[in-house]
Measured scan of single mutants.
Amino acid sequence: NTCEECGKPIGCDCKDLSYKDRHWHEACFHCSQCRNSLVDKPFAAKEDQLLCTDCYSNEY
């Protein structure tokens, strides 16, 4: 699979995080606004962007 954020392949030695058929490296899986990691945290998706709950609450 190819990472949505950096565009590089996700190798066998990396954790592949996925959501709705989109894939990310663990280090690339972060909020589109504040850039905080979303690994093991709740998040929301809006208009193809992933947002942490704080940024989502502030926007919507």
Rank of each mutant, 00 (worst) to 15 (best):
N1H: 05
N1Q: 01
N1D: 08
N1K: 07
T2C: 15
T2P: 02
T2E: 02
T2D: 04
C3R: 00
C3W: 00
C3E: 01
C3N: 01
C3S: 01
E4L: 05
E4Y: 10
E4S: 05
E4R: 07
E4W: 11
E4T: 11
E5W: 08
E5A: 11
E5Q: 10
C6H: 01
G7H: 04
G7Q: 13
G7Y: 15
G7E: 03
G7I: 02
G7W: 05
G7A: 15
K8W: 05
K8L: 09
K8A: 08
K8D: 05
P9L: 03
P9T: 10
I10A: 02
I10T: 04
I10E: 02
I10R: 01
G11P: 02
G11W: 04
G11A: 02
G11S: 05
C12I: 15
C12W: 07
D13P: 06
D13I: 05
D13Q: 09
D13K: 08
C14V: 12
C14L: 12
C14Q: 09
C14M: 15
K15P: 08
K15N: 10
K15V: 04
K15H: 12
D16E: 08
D16K: 11
D16H: 02
D16C: 11
L17C: 15
L17I: 13
L17A: 13
L17H: 05
L17S: 10
L17G: 10
L17N: 06
S18R: 09
S18E: 14
S18Q: 11
Y19W: 05
Y19K: 03
Y19L: 13
K20Q: 14
K20G: 10
K20Y: 04
D21I: 00
D21L: 04
D21S: 07
R22K: 09
R22M: 15
H23I: 06
H23M: 02
H23N: 06
W24N: 06
W24A: 03
W24G: 05
W24I: 03
H25D: 00
E26W: 03
E26F: 03
E26T: 09
E26I: 02
E26S: 09
E26A: 14
E26V: 07
A27R: 08
A27I: 06
A27F: 13
A27P: 13
A27Y: 12
A27M: 11
C28H: 04
C28K: 02
C28W: 00
C28N: 04
C28S: 01
C28R: 02
F29D: 02
F29T: 06
H30I: 09
H30G: 13
H30S: 10
H30E: 09
C31N: 00
S32V: 13
S32H: 12
S32T: 13
Q33W: 02
Q33H: 07
C34E: 01
C34S: 01
C34D: 01
C34K: 01
C34Q: 00
R35F: 12
N36K: 14
N36H: 13
S37R: 08
S37N: 07
S37P: 08
S37W: 05
L38Y: 00
L38V: 09
L38M: 10
V39W: 02
V39E: 14
V39R: 13
V39C: 07
D40S: 07
D40V: 05
D40F: 03
D40R: 07
K41S: 10
K41L: 10
K41C: 14
K41V: 10
K41Q: 13
K41T: 12
P42Q: 15
F43T: 14
F43P: 14
F43V: 15
F43K: 10
A44N: 10
A44S: 14
A44M: 13
A44W: 06
A44R: 15
A44K: 15
A45R: 14
A45F: 10
K46A: 10
K46G: 09
K46E: 14
E47Q: 06
E47N: 12
E47H: 09
E47G: 09
E47K: 07
E47L: 10
E47Y: 09
E47T: 09
D48Q: 10
D48W: 10
D48Y: 07
D48F: 09
D48I: 03
Q49N: 12
Q49F: 08
Q49L: 12
Q49A: 10
L50V: 08
L50G: 02
L50D: 03
L50C: 06
L50P: 12
L51E: 05
L51I: 03
L51K: 12
L51S: 05
C52M: 01
C52D: 02
C52V: 02
C52I: 01
C52A: 02
T53G: 12
T53A: 10
T53Q: 14
T53L: 02
D54N: 11
D54S: 10
D54F: 04
D54A: 08
C55Y: 02
C55T: 04
C55K: 06
C55H: 05
C55D: 05
Y56T: 14
Y56W: 08
Y56D: 15
S57K: 11
S57C: 06
N58V: 13
N58K: 10
N58D: 14
N58G: 14
E59C: 15
E59R: 15
E59P: 10
Y60C: 15
Y60K: 15
